[in-house]
Design a protein around this nucleic acid. Structure first.
Lengths: 140, 140
DNA sequence: ATAAAGCCTCCCGCGACTGGAAGGTCAAGG
DNA sequence: CCTTGACCTTCCAGTCGCGGGAGGCTTTAT
């Protein structure tokens, strides 16, 4: 299979597949003409990567997952650990976004949204942070 | 005020402040020695930027918000529009992350997580996407 | 006088690709 | 046989929002 074929079958752009080879996630063979020659196993790995990435796993997660995928004697606990760590990160992000959602909703509700210049949103944005000696910027 | 002073007062790293100058969000004066000389108005803008960024507004949003901030005759409706668009994006992201959360939770629940190699998580990841002619990769 | 801190510019790097240029290869049609 | 066009190759640059660090000023404190 050439790269175009696996691209169509896996749903990944050719560019991405070349990138994955570059960083060592797949290692297709080479034909005499220099073209990449993908085996079925390569296709499966790429499909695996596409799915894992779409679930938000980082490249490093994917690297670890692929190793486990290749190792038929792996313990499912190892996979579960990676997945749970990822889930924790997702939940963290969810909490942050929920907080943002709430803050913004409050501000938007407080704003008349008419032709007058008076605006609680800008007023909030303009508040200078109370100086914090422990240098933790952007945290409020 | 030198950059260190505004950094402390605004909570933004000096590097970030220099970057904001580079992309035209602030325009401090210069002293004879070449040091940036920040006015109070610059400090307020930077604090504004820090707060807006911490609320997840994009740099381009910030640029627009700053313009409105400078314009004392602005209509609050314009600000509200930007904020609402941002809120929409946040809600979208929230929905995506929630979907990811649900999928991952299902997979994790289905996985025994013991020493055996059998793993539903890997099994799911390994499924090759059903070929889709409309080239929309990564969407499932 | 000297050391330390603060400031300057410039360049490289990150993550995970994406786009484009310049060129080799292959199958089909005239 | 030649051309066209699709496909493949490598390499380089850019993305976003900074952070790290080098190398070299100026200012401040001892």
């Amino acid at each position: 299979m050439n790269i175009g074929d696996v691209s169509r079958l896996s749903g990944l752009p050719s560019k991405t597949i070349r990138y994955y080879e570059e960083i060592g996630l797949v290692a297709p063979l080479r034909s005499d003409n220099g073209y990449r020659a993908f085996r079925d196993s390569d296709l499966h790995k790429l499909a695996f990567l596409g799915r894992a990435r779409s679930l938000g796993f980082s490249i490093e997660d994917c690297r670890n997952l692929l190793t486990l995928y290749d190792d038929t004697t792996r313990a499912s606990a190892d996979v579960k650990t990676i997945a749970r760590q990822h889930l924790t990160r997702i939940d963290q992000k969810l909490a942050e976004l929920t907080a943002l959602h709430d803050t913004l909703t409050h501000l938007i509700d407080a704003c008349a949204g008419d032709h007058r210049p008076d605006c609680p949103i800008l007023a909030d944005l303009a508040t200078v942070p109370d100086t914090k000696p422990g240098h933790s910027p952007l945290v409020r």
